[in-house]
Design a protein around this nucleic acid. Structure first.
Lengths: 135, 135
DNA sequence: ACATTTGTAATGTATTTTATTACAGTATGA
DNA sequence: TCATACTGTAATAAAATACATTACAAATGT
C-alpha cells in the first residue's frame, strides 16, 4: 500500500540530504509535505530496514542519512518503494478456457518487466545529490 | 479512473485482432476477461473515440478493428489509456514555504516525463500483431 | 414484432489509500 | 528525576478510487 511511497520517500530523503548532520523529526518532515507524521514514520521504517537512514528516539530525536547522498541513486529508492511499475492488470482472473485469457497476465508481466528495466536504467543514472541540487 | 485500462484495452484488441472480420460482442469479450460487459463497452467507447475500432448496434452487433493490427502499436494503446505513468505524488499540496515542498511536484513531473518517453520508445517497437501472435 | 445488442447514466459495493487516535518506550535537559 | 519531546506501531476511521450492477433507451437483423 501507499501509492505515493516513492514520491514521499524521495521527498524525505531530499530533505535529509539538505541537513546531512542533523536528526530531523517526523513532524518537521510531515510539515514540508503536508502529510500525517505517522505516515512519514512508516516510510522511514522502510528506509531503516534497508539501512538508508538511522533514527534516534527521545527528545531531539529524528532521522538522518546513513550514507552520503552521492551514493544513493533514484533507482535504489525506486526498488525500495516499488514492487514493480505496471500498466495495470484486469482485476479478475481471466477465463482459463480462452487462449488469450489463459496467458494474458504472463505476457503482460513480460512486458512490464521490460519496462521496469528501462526505468531502472534511467534512474540508476541519477543520484540523490543530483536530484536534491535541483532545489 | 479504471486502473486496468491499458490491460483491458490490450486484451480487447488482442481478441479483436484474432477475428479481424467479425463483430465481437461486449458479452463475449467480457467472458474472456471475466469483467462486466458495461466496463468493456466503456473501454470500447474510448477506442472508438480514437478511431481504432468501430461498433455496430443491434442484433449480431459488436465491435471490430478499423485498421490492421500491424498498424497499431502498443504505444498507441498506451497513449490512449494513460495520461502518464508516474511513480506517484504525495497526496496533499506540499508546503509552499519549504524550498523542497514548493518545487517537488514540478521536479517529479520532469522525472516522470523522462520515464514516459522511455516507455513509449519501448512500446512503439511492438505492434498489436506481434503481441497478439504470442497467443 | 421480437430478440439481441450497443450506449450511457445512475447507483451500489468493494478495495485501497490516507488520516487519526492511542499509547508504550526512549532520550534529553532543567 | 521528572517533564517534555520524540519514535514505533497497532488499531480504527474516513476518504478516495475502482469496479459491478441495474436500468432503460435506441438500433438492427430475422
Amino acid at each position: 500500500m501507499i501509492s505515493g511511497k516513492f514520491a514521499i520517500t524521495l521527498h524525505i530523503l531530499t530533505l535529509l540530504s539538505k541537513f546531512p548532520d542533523e536528526f530531523l523529526s517526523s513532524d518537521f518532515l510531515a510539515g514540508s509535505m503536508n502529510l500525517h507524521p505517522v505516515l512519514i514514520r512508516k516510510e522511514i521504517a522502510n528506509l531503516k530496514k534497508h539501512h538508508i537512514v538511522e533514527s534516534k528516539e527521545g527528545k531531539n530525536g529524528g532521522t538522518k542519512l546513513l550514507r552520503p547522498a552521492e551514493n544513493i541513486s533514484l533507482d535504489d529508492i525506486f526498488k525500495l518503494t516499488f514492487e514493480r511499475v505496471t500498466l495495470g492488470y484486469s482485476k479478475n482472473d481471466p477465463n482459463p478456457d480462452c487462449p488469450v485469457g489463459k496467458n494474458i497476465n504472463k505476457k503482460l508481466d513480460e512486458l512490464y518487466i521490460d519496462i521496469n528495466d528501462k526505468i531502472s536504467k534511467e534512474l540508476r543514472g541519477i543520484s540523490l545529490t543530483e536530484f536534491s541540487n535541483k532545489f
